[in-house]
Structure formats: structure tokens, C-alpha cells
Design a protein around this nucleic acid. Structure first.
Lengths: 354, 354
DNA sequence: TTGAAAGCGTTACCAT
DNA sequence: ATGGTAACGCTTTCAA
């Protein structure tokens, strides 16, 4: 048995309160007594107050949870998510708070349990595809939370940090449309809940599963509608995951079709890089160049010359954590819209004359 | 006030034990009663057993801690650390365990407190420079832990996963020595506790602060000693952090010295990439090529054509977590040495004739 | 400055 | 199958 605070109290011959004070409120006792207590504790091998017991009594834990839709291991694979985490981590660090990464098991029930059981004082919910249930659990627990995707049912007290996905998507799509592209493919992850790969047919962008993906695709579609290319004329391609290889796999065969797309708008940089990989791997590689765009502006995008939308990743994480840790008094300040920028690089160009 | 288990018990007219069982041991009551209880809970807005109270009572938390020496935000900047985390996350996920990332505040006392207060069932200690105190705290708490750096004072029950740093470093240095290089610089982070940048003088590799850095530098030195270049003839360069920019800064001016080094052996890939950046930025850039080596084989190393030592990053994390979560019965199995490989790419070549 | 008492919300054992 | 009771280890009034 590890010694408890009680044991230390007995050893020194004082009450438990006094030992507790020696640790948590040093001003409540004489320095001499405090030293005596701390010495005794050292001698007994008492490691200080048990964190769990302390949390129970105090009513807070000192750590915030980060919730990902996808597998935790996936999160570390996505450069954007990693930089978001770095931002959260920095803020947590400054606050003396730990971050709990909560993996969500595949089964709905287990996932619920995971959120119910997380010992945290609040949650950063990183754009979950199907997050309603998670938010319900969090609300039921009475914990504060911050989301990174705008929500229709957001209450006045709900905190949010993110970008105007649809407007940003519109902007980059308008750039591509302005270059003359009309035969265009839209590539995204989480179009349907079933992670299918390759071209899929949907009646409209509003049927897309993942809210962020939905907004981005809607923004793309907006811009093309303005030049007379409506949803039905766009090729929608689903990727089975947000990764480079998923991007490669998704566009397999796409450019061998009759009248292949002259441009691919991807919902993320990693997918777009996958498209560039796929194009580079094409035998002969003598085809007319295809324009490709991404989203996020991860570091690799610059190297690859990818035209993309930049959003501040670390800042997003930092603000999410700060919104959680220092709730603004003014509820309006709890809704932060970050700026985005269209970054034009070499991956987009005018439609080649065929 | 959020309803407690007690409130649910009263509402249904059963004892607290029964409500508790409804959640934690469904086989202990009839399905009908269980449904009634769960319904009442839903109605009252009871979010399920309080995780903290449950942990206190049960004696375990259901999450493992990951301890980084450096700032938490740094950890996400280092690609190797990120892949390590991915490995830990994958294993944790499979286990239904959360990971707590514990930031260590700069002040020693606060850092101690952070480790003492972390609500976890064990720790993965990711190569901390000055980890003794942390391990002491962990031991005092009676928590299991896994380290990723070999330790001299390791007890028979101490768990470890890592590589033979010194041998791996020896191997890559021997490659460079074999190419004829004799005027060589060794570049590393955490050479001294004070994060100085630029050339420093040390009596020997054993004076290096960070244990891993120490082993690697010792391995480099071993190989050069074999070809008659002893420690005093090597240029030791300290970087103020493990990052690309720290690498650039550290070697500033290095190649403008009389008789500049023809090769730089870095203690990590990011530092080596920084050296390549620095070399690429040199005005004129007409100097004879400098050979550069890294360590870890992060993805960017391949793109940059960096000669380096490969070690399995994710696997390291995965095994660390598994060693913690499923302690092997045979204590010898608690000490895992991972394989490394010398990856020769274009960044190393023969000494140019001057 | 110190101590006594009353929980914090739950679970586990042992009866029934 | 269900309930009573006793912890789990600590903090925090409040009174001395």
C-alpha cells in the first residue's frame, strides 16, 4: 500500500487538514511545520495528494479533452490536424493544463462511453463528421466545449472557431473557373458515411455527409454555377480517407475517361497531393496538364507548388483552447471567424487547347 | 446541480448499487429494471457515472500519460515525435485507453507538480533530457512507465523500447569516414542544458547533456577515432532546439571558416535539413559540396535525398504503449531493441578534391 | 495556526 | 436480483 495523506498526518502527529494545507495552501501553516510534514512525506514515500481524489473533491480535473472524429492515429497522419493540436498544446501548456486525446471506438455505444468517461473539464471538438451525439453527451455532462465547424443549432453560449468554409471554397473554385475550366472534378473525403472510393453521384452538395466537406463542395459548386456549370455537370469523386494514398486511389481511371476533367478541386491538401502523385505516375505523362487545387495550405503544399486556400492551423487550435480555458465574458467573442487566403501556385493554369 | 447517481436511484426507487450496476455490471440486474433505470437517467439528464469518482473508487483511470521533455508544442513540430505519438495513439485506441499529454512547465517545481498531478495509470516517457526527477516522481507514485532511451540505472522491471543509439550513429559515421571525410562537424540539439547555438567545445562526448544526443555523438566519435580523427579534431556544433531553423542558425558561418568541414553529421533529420537549407542559401553556392547526414529517416528525408539512419517511429510508440498496457510476463520482454538501417542517399559523397 | 467533521460521487463486498 | 454499508483519498468550511 502506498502511503496516504492520512499516514503522513499520523506520522507527524497533525491532522489531515494540515498535511493537505502543506501541499495546497502553504500560507496556512508555519514554514517549519510545513517542512516537517514534507520531510515526513518524503521519508514515507508519499507522492503528494492523489490527483483523482483531489479532482473529485475540488470539482475540476485540470485537463481538457480533444475529440477527433476519425481514429486517433489518423489525426497524427493529417498535417493540418497535427498543427491544430500543436496550437491546442501551446495554449494548454501556458495554462498549466494537460490535454487528453480521447479515441473514439468504432462502435457508437463504446464511443459514447468514451466521451462520458473522459476525465476533463471541457472539450475541443475537432470537426467531427457525425458529432451531434458527442455534443449531446458533452452538454449532458455540463461541460463547456468548442467546435471548429460552424453549426446550425449553435446556441448563444456555444463557442466556435473556424473559417467560412463555403466562401473560401467559392473563392478558389472561382479562380479555377476564371482560368476557363469547365470539365471539373470535385474530390473529397467523407462524402458518404461509407468511405467509398471513386466517382459517386449525388443530387446536390447538401447531401454530402461530413459538414465541412459539404460546405466546401457547396462553395465549389457555387462558383461553377456562376459560370453556367451546374452540379450535375461536375464529377464528384469520393476518397476513402483523408490521405495522399486515398487521393491517388480515388482518381484512378479518372483521366482515362472520355473527356476527362481538366481540373480537380480537392477538399484538402493531402488529397490534392495524391492527385498530383497520380498524375505524375501516369505512363507517358504526355497528357495535357491538369489543374489541381487543395485546401488548408499545409507545408508540403508550398513544396509541391499547390494552389490552395490557406487557413491558420495552429492559431485555430490555440484559439479553440483559449476559448475553452478563458471563456470570453462577451458571448459574441466566443464565435471566432479566422481569415483565409487564396494561395495561387503552379498547380493551376489555363485550360490547355486540345 | 447536475443529477447524481443517487438522484436516479431515488427517482426509480432503488438503491445506488443497483443504479451503479445498471451502468457497470448489466448482468447483475434484470433487463427490465435496467431499462427503467436508464430511462429515468435520460429523463433526469444524468450523464452516467462521474469519471473522477469512478476512478477514485476503482483505483484506475483508463488513460496513459505521455511525457515530453520539451514543450508540448515542440513535440508536434518534430515529425519523429508526431509519428511516435501516432504509434502510441493507435495502441491506446485499440485498448480503449485515452492518452494524456502532460506539458512540463519550465520551472522544475511546477514540472514536478505536473507529473504528480497527472491522472493516469502509467507513463510513456519520450526521451527526456533530464528525466531522472520525472522518473523519481513516477516511481514514487507507484506507476508503471516505459522509457525510450536506455538507462544505466534501469531495474529489472523497467520497461524500455528504443534503438542502440551509439551503434547506429557509429554506422552512419563510418559511412562518412569511409568516403574519406576527415574535417567533420557534429551538429546536435541539447548538447548543453543552456541551448546555445554555434560551435562549442567539450572535453568529450560523455559531457553532452541529453542522453540520446550523448550516445549519438559518442557513436559518431567512435567511428572517426577508428580512422585516427579523435574528438578534439571534430567540430562540435550546438543547435538551440531540434528544428530546421535551429539547424540553419547553428551552422551560420561554419562554412566560411578556414578549412571548413567537408561533412556535417547531424543528430536528427530536421537539423540535417536545416544544414541543407543553409548550404542552399549560400550566395554563389559554388563551393565544393558538403556531405550531410541526419538521423531518424522522417518522410522529408527521402524527398531531400538525405542520408540517414532509419528507425521505426510509429512502431516505437506502439510498442511503448503496449509495454505499458500489456506488461509482458517475462521481464526480459520488457526491453525491446528496435532495428535500424543506414539509408544512403544523395546528401553524402566522397570528399571533393580541393 | 491547527483540527474536527462533512462530504465529493462512486463501487464492491456481503448480506438478503 | 437487490440493498446496506463502508470505503476510495482528499479538501474545505468552521470553530477553537
Amino acid at each position: 500500500m502506498r502511503p496516504t495523506l492520512q499516514a503522513v498526518a499520523e506520522a507527524v502527529g497533525v491532522s489531515r487538514s494540515t498535511v493537505s494545507n502543506a501541499y495546497s495552501r502553504p500560507d496556512q501553516l508555519s514554514a517549519a511545520l510545513r517542512e516537517r510534514i514534507l520531510d515526513a512525506a518524503r521519508q514515507l514515500g508519499y507522492p503528494g495528494p492523489n490527483p483523482t481524489a483531489r479532482s473529485l473533491r475540488r470539482g475540476f480535473v485540470g485537463s481538457i479533452g480533444v475529440l477527433f472524429t476519425s481514429q486517433l492515429s489518423y489525426a497524427f497522419t493529417d498535417p493540418f490536424a497535427v498543427r491544430f493540436l500543436a496550437g491546442v498544446g501551446g495554449a494548454a501548456e501556458r495554462h498549466g493544463t494537460s490535454m487528453l486525446l480521447v479515441p473514439l471506438p468504432p462502435a457508437q455505444t463504446d464511443a459514447r462511453r468514451a466521451v462520458e468517461n473522459a476525465a476533463v473539464d471541457g472539450f475541443c471538438v475537432y470537426c467531427a463528421a457525425d458529432e451531434e451525439w458527442a455534443l449531446d453527451v458533452i452538454r449532458e455532462r455540463g461541460l463547456p466545449f468548442v467546435t471548429t465547424a460552424a453549426r446550425e443549432d449553435a446556441g448563444p453560449d456555444d463557442r466556435f472557431v473556424g473559417i467560412d468554409e463555403r466562401a473560401a471554397a467559392h473563392r478558389i473554385a472561382a479562380h479555377v473557373a476564371g482560368l476557363g475550366h469547365r470539365r471539373v472534378a470535385l474530390l473529397a473525403d467523407a462524402v458518404l458515411p461509407d468511405a467509398s472510393t471513386g466517382p459517386v453521384t449525388l443530387a446536390g452538395a447538401d447531401e454530402v455527409w461530413h459538414p465541412t466537406t459539404r460546405d466546401r463542395l457547396a462553395g465549389f459548386a457555387d462558383a461553377f454555377a456562376e459560370v453556367g456549370v451546374d452540379w450535375g455537370k461536375l464529377t464528384l469523386v469520393s476518397a476513402a480517407g483523408n490521405s495522399r494514398v486515398a487521393g491517388v486511389a480515388a482518381v484512378a481511371g479518372l483521366f482515362d475517361m472520355p473527356a476527362p476533367p481538366t481540373a480537380v478541386l480537392a477538399g484538402s491538401d493531402v488529397l490534392a497531393l495524391g492527385v498530383l502523385d497520380a498524375l505524375a505516375q501516369r505512363p507517358g505523362n504526355t497528357n495535357p496538364p491538369v489543374s489541381v487545387t487543395g485546401f488548408d495550405d499545409i507545408p508540403e503544399a508550398a513544396t509541391a507548388g499547390l494552389t490552395t486556400v490557406r487557413q491558420p492551423a495552429e492559431e485555430k487550435g490555440r484559439i479553440a483552447a483559449e476559448l475553452l480555458l478563458d471563456p470570453p465574458t462577451d458571448p459574441a467573442a466566443g464565435h471566432v471567424l479566422l481569415p483565409t487566403a487564396l494561395i495561387v501556385r503552379s498547380s493551376t493554369g489555363p485550360v490547355p487547347r486540345s
